[in-house]
C-alpha cells in the first residue's frame, strides 16, 4: 500500500509541477491543487498506515488495539484541506477578476504592462 501511494504521490507532484510551469493561469491553479493533494497524501503516508487498528475503541471492542493508527496526521490533513480549499477559492476569484481586467489568462501576453 505504501509503495502504491508513494507512486501516486510522485505522479501527483509531477503533474502539479508540469501544470505550474504552464502559462495559463487556470493550469497554474490546477497545478497548485495537484501539489496540495500530493502533499496531503504525503502526510497521510508519513504518519504510518496500519490497517484495521483504530485508535478509538468502537462497538464490540473494549480496548484499543496494541499498535493503533495515529489519528493526528488525519487531523493535520483535514486542516490542510480546509485551508487549501479556501485558498483555491480565493485564487479562482482572483483569476476571474484578472481575466475581467485584462481580457486574457495568459501570463506571457502581459509582459509589456509588467514594469509599470
Amino acid at each position: 500500500m505504501e509503495v502504491l501511494l508513494a507512486i501516486v504521490i510522485g505522479l501527483l507532484y509531477a503533474a502539479g509541477v508540469y501544470l505550474l510551469l504552464r502559462r495559463s493561469i487556470v493550469k497554474l491553479i490546477l497545478g497548485i491543487m495537484f501539489f496540495s493533494h500530493a502533499t496531503n497524501l504525503l502526510i497521510f503516508v508519513a504518519g504510518g498506515l496500519h490497517k484495521g487498528k483504530p485508535q478509538f475503541a468502537s462497538d464490540g471492542l473494549t480496548a484499543v488495539s496494541a499498535n493503533p493508527t495515529d489519528p493526528l496526521p488525519q487531523a493535520l490533513i483535514l486542516t490542510a484541506i480546509v485551508i487549501g480549499f479556501g485558498i483555491t477559492a480565493f485564487f479562482l476569484a482572483l483569476m476571474y477578476r484578472f481575466y475581467q481586467a485584462t481580457g486574457t489568462e495568459d501570463l506571457d501576453e502581459l509582459k509589456e504592462g509588467e514594469n509599470k
Binding site: L28, I32, T39, I43, A46, L76, F90, L94, F98
Partner: peptide, 22 residues
C-alpha cells in the same frame, strides 16, 4: 498572481516538511 502562486508553493513545501518530520 505571482505573489499568490509562489507563496502557495512555498506553503506546500512547508507542509510536506511537517509531514515528513512528523
Amino acid at each position: 498572481i505571482k505573489y499568490v502562486s509562489i507563496n502557495l508553493v512555498s506553503s506546500l513545501f512547508f507542509l510536506a516538511g511537517i509531514g515528513l518530520l512528523y
